[in-house]
Design a protein around this nucleic acid. Structure first.
Lengths: 147, 147
DNA sequence: CCAAACTGGTTTCATTTGTAACCATCGAAA
DNA sequence: TTTCGATGGTTACAAATGAAACCAGTTTGG
């Protein structure tokens, strides 16, 4: 007779979520304090900063956000004049989004902070452990994508 | 001159979050479809199922939930008559929470499903990869707890 | 050509969440 | 004891989220 109890403390979905939540919450302080950005806004900013120009749909794919989140984040960044929309020539439903000078400046300011955050977090791990987390995450990503 | 660009696709906080979000969302279908539970409600149920009796504060600590989430989840489970509150003898602020028969039945029904979910997810990884994800997660948990 | 199905993106509405204020009780120190 | 700070827990309010409806505009098939 199996003891039908679930040990939350060693249940992977729970641990993963708690871990990601903690990391993300900690990291969010950076863009929240600095510029009052929400996570969707930060992701939009960094997506455009990285790739230059994208449509809302592409942004959603790249940053794994629901399209309503993208829509609202884009609207807010536009309100701040951090990005502009350019209608597509051929398909009038589509808009190409790009950062303005101000948006790019904010992005450039955030990048080193983001990198430092990651670096400091990983610095607390051994070389082995760093390799392990990367390997594990990749494996799970693959496992889930084939779902 | 460093190219001040952040590759979102390999940025650990982002990957971790996306991964946890996907896993959690997938898993939530189980308790959402089966019983219409929210995540806080599920965590409350499983916390009490595992430990028997806890106070709201203990529940919050064990399951890493903010006290308002706990409070609301407890209220809902009580409304369903899945748990009862018993006032503490010595400290009248404290209530001891425990599952009723119905709550326990729901819990017992969920446990195998949760275990199966985890098992099937991990079954897609190699032995090495399973070891890696566990090692990596533990290391990050430790790193963060010392923060 | 035209209707139907589809796609990019926005909006509406209900639900969930976080923050902060709050109430009651407790414990420690004066 | 009385007072004051901490603690267990709830509530009020604002902000974030998700689902589904929606509005163009586009494509496809007849």
């Amino acid at each position: 007779m199996e003891p039908e109890v679930l040990e939350l403390e060693s249940f992977l979905p729970y641990r993963l979520y708690r871990l990601a939540d903690t990391v993300s919450r900690e990291f969010s302080r950076i863009y929240k304090e600095r510029h009052g950005l929400t996570r969707p806004e930060w992701r939009t900013l960094s997506g455009l900063g990285e790739r230059g120009t994208m449509t809302a749909t592409e942004l959603g794919d790249q940053s794994a956000m629901h399209k309503t989140k993208v829509s609202r984040a884009v609207a807010e960044l536009e309100r701040r004049r951090w990005l502009t929309r350019t209608p597509d020539e051929n398909d009038r439903r589509v808009e190409h989004l790009a950062l303005t000078k101000a948006g790019l400046a904010a992005y450039r300011e955030m990048v080193p902070l983001a990198k430092a955050f990651e670096r400091e977090l990983l610095a607390r791990l051994s070389e082995d452990e760093r390799a392990a987390i990367v390997k594990g995450v990749v494996a799970l990503e693959v496992a889930l994508s084939a779902l």
